[in-house]
Design a protein around this nucleic acid. Structure first.
Lengths: 200, 200
DNA sequence: AAATGAAGACGAGACGTATCGATTCGAAAG
DNA sequence: CTTTCGAATCGATACGTCTCGTCTTCATTT
C-alpha cells in the first residue's frame, strides 16, 4: 500500500492571488534591485504575503524567479516547420533572439544560469524545465532536416544545438552584446551546407 | 608641483607567503566545499591568515578564486601559428578543450562566470582580465587567416569567436558534458570554408 | 478539523569593518 | 655602520548587519 502522496485532506485552497502577487513582485524586484539584491523577505514584503507562504511553494528564490519568468514573460518555445532546414533554423534563431533581446528577459536568464552553477539542485531543475525543452525543440527541427538529408556533412544535430545555444548564451553571459540579426545570418551560414542554402 | 602620488612611505612588505597560502587554500576549498560553501572566513582559517589580510588585497572571494585559478592552474592562452587557418583553429580548440576538461578548472570557470553575472563589478574585472585576453588570442589567429583570405565568406571574425567560445562555455555551463575531440572536428567543419580545409 | 494565510520572532552563519598588539621594512639621524 | 622611528603589514578577533530558513501565533477558509 502506498500512503496517499498527493491530494492532501480538505483544508484550504492555495491562494491564486498570493501566487500571482509573489511572481509579480519577483519580476518587478529583479528589474529594480538586480538578482543580488533580490531576497525572499523583499518579495514577501512587496507582495504583501509572508515568508512562509513563499517557502511553502518554492524551494528557493531562483525557483520563484524561474516561475515568474515563465509566467510574466512569454517564453514560448518555437518549433518552425517551413519545409526547409535553412529557413527553419533562421526562424528558430530569430524567435530566440527576439526573446533574448528583451532586457528584463536577458537579465533574468543571466541570473538563472548563474544560480544554476552555484546551486546544484536548482541547476537540475533549470536544465530539466527550461534548457531541455528548448534543446528538444531545436532537436525536432534538426531531425526533420536530417531525414531530408539537409544537414551539412560532418555536423551532428548535437553539435549544431551546442553551437546555436552556446552562441546565444555566450552573447548574454560573456559579451553582454545582445544577439542581432547579423548573427542570425552568420550562424545560418556556418550551420548550413553551402550551396544548398536557400534554393531560390 | 605634484604631490608625490605613488611611492608610499616605507612600511612592511606584502607577505608572499600569506599570498600563496590564501590562493592555495581557495583552490583546495573550492574542490572540497564548492563555490557556494566557499567563504572568506574559511579561506582565512585554512590558510592561517586573517580576514583583513584577504580583504586588504582582494575585493571579493571571486577575485581570490580568479587569482587562484591563474596561479595554481596553468591557464595559458594559446596562439597557434601553423600557417593554415584550419590547423590553427584546431590547435586553439584542442588547447582550450584540454584545459576545460580538467575538473577543477571546469568547476572554477563555472563559478567565475556565475559570479560575473551576479556581481557587476567583478564581471567587469572577469571580462577584462580573463575573457578578453583569450578572445584577443583567437582574434590574432583569425586576423592572420583573414589576411590570407582563408575565412569562409559570410563569417566575420567576431561571429567565429562568439561561436567558438560560446560552444565551449555552453558545454561547461548548460550541458555539463565536457568538450571532447569530436566537437573540435565539428567546430572546424562549421567554421572552415568547405573544400579548402586541410590541403591534405 | 485541517490546511492555508499574514506577520514576525528566532538562531545560525557570513559579510565587511574596525581594532589590537606584534612584526618588519625603509628612511633618516647619529 | 648603527640606532631610532614611523608606516604599513601581519594574525586574530570583536562587532553590527544582513539574509536565510525554521518556527510560532493567530485568523481565515473549506
Amino acid at each position: 500500500m502506498s500512503d496517499r502522496p498527493v491530494q492532501p485532506r480538505p483544508g484550504r485552497k492555495r491562494s491564486e492571488e498570493s501566487r500571482l502577487a509573489i511572481l509579480t513582485a519577483a519580476f518587478e524586484l529583479i528589474a529594480e534591485v538586480g538578482y543580488a539584491g533580490l531576497t525572499i523577505e523583499g518579495i514577501a514584503a512587496r507582495s504583501g504575503t509572508g515568508k512562509q507562504t513563499i517557502y511553502r511553494w518554492w524551494p528557493s528564490k531562483a525557483d520563484v524567479l524561474m516561475d515568474a519568468m515563465a509566467t510574466k514573460a512569454e517564453l514560448y518555445v518555437p518549433i518552425p516547420d517551413t519545409g526547409s532546414y535553412a529557413a527553419d533554423l533562421r526562424a528558430f534563431l530569430e524567435a530566440s533572439f527576439t526573446l533574448a533581446r528583451r532586457p528584463a528577459v536577458a537579465d533574468g536568464l543571466r541570473a538563472l544560469m548563474a544560480e544554476a552553477q552555484i546551486d546544484a539542485a536548482f541547476g537540475e531543475r533549470f536544465r530539466a524545465s527550461f534548457l531541455r525543452p528548448r534543446r528538444d525543440a531545436l532537436g525536432i527541427v534538426l531531425e526533420r532536416a536530417r531525414s531530408r538529408g539537409e544537414l551539412p556533412p560532418g555536423l551532428s544535430p548535437g553539435a549544431i544545438a551546442d553551437i546555436v545555444f552556446g552562441t546565444i548564451w555566450y552573447r548574454l553571459l560573456a559579451t553582454r552584446r545582445l544577439p542581432d540579426d547579423r548573427l542570425v545570418e552568420e550562424l545560418v551560414t556556418a550551420l548550413t551546407e553551402p550551396g544548398l542554402e536557400e534554393p531560390s
